[in-house]
């Protein structure tokens, strides 16, 4: 029931008063309820658990993290990305 991978919204619709969509997980397309991500758009990636999209994957944050790991050379590790509590 816990799907760890994000999928892409390929279609939005409405069913019995609920916002629904079809989400593509690398070729497997699954109907997903979008009630918890009402602002989501076709083309965006969402994290889905038990048929519900729980959030939209933040493309900028993903790129920031990737760039950091890619660009760092040995011995060049400064602060890690991401937020932290005080």
């Amino acid at each position: 029931m816990c799907l760890a991978v994000p999928g892409m919204i390929i279609e939005r619709s409405e069913e019995n008063g609920l916002p629904m969509g079809r989400v593509d997980f690398g070729g497997t397309v699954i109907p997903v309820c979008l009630a918890y991500v009402p602002e989501s758009k076709v083309g965006q990636y969402v994290i889905v658990h038990a048929g519900f999209a729980l959030n939209i994957v933040d493309e900028d944050e993903a790129q920031k993290t990737l760039a950091l790991w890619r660009e760092l050379n040995q011995g060049d590790f400064g602060d890690l990305p991401g937020e932290r509590s005080a």
């Binding site: 918890y36 994957v57 993903a62 920031k64 990305p81 991401g82 937020e83 932290r84 509590s85």
Partner: peptide, 17 residues
């Protein structure tokens, strides 16, 4: 401290709805 290494999917407040 609490640190977030999964910023593309998680923020401090979570999904309010």
């Amino acid at each position: 401290s609490v640190e977030n290494q999964y910023a593309r999917a998680v923020n401090r407040e979570g999904n309010a709805v």
